[in-house]
Amino acid sequence: MMRFVFSLMIAVALSPNAAIAQDKPSKAKSWNLTGQVKARFDAKVVDMLCEVSGGAACADKCGGGTQQLGVVRKSDGRLFPVSKNGQPIFSGAMADLLPYCNKDVEVDGLLAGEGDIKIYQVQLIREQGTKKWNKTSGFTKAWRKQFPDAGKKGPWFRNDPRIAKQLAADGWLGLGKEADVAYAKDEVE
């Protein structure tokens, strides 16, 4: 019996620490992601390079949007890359996180990834000590500010001049126009 109890304790002790993701009840919406865990927790928004280099490679004010941002969970000091905001439009979370650079916040969202390797999608954020949650939907506004003359018909990724330039150069498959034509003929037939 004692051996069984001891084995059980060891198994629990070795479980991935990402499992303890939810410090508080989450209001995050499911996206049916691989290894999805709803995760609301207290954190600090950080410049990831500054964080992983131990302060050796820090940009002032998170580089003003040039550096990838992450969150360090308060309860255990674990760093999560924040890969995605709450919009379903291929958008990162830079515009939503940058105002909180190096600040203590509360975030709500989803951890995703197989096993113990996890990235984070932030859906809601608020500075600690404040009540109002902010939805992480700042990408579109920031993109429009950057590209005021870009087309307005359809979603941003159909109008982004940088993407259009790459598609013109390398094609939709990245293999040149000939490959695109061959693929299109197969698809349309």
Binding site: F90, G92, D170, L173, G174
Partner: peptide, 17 residues
């Protein structure tokens, strides 16, 4: 790969790591 190339462009332009 080529299957996901266009989406990879969208995501990197969107600031996704």
């Amino acid at each position: 790969g080529s299957a996901h190339h266009t989406c990879a462009l969208w995501c990197s332009a969107g600031g996704i790591p």
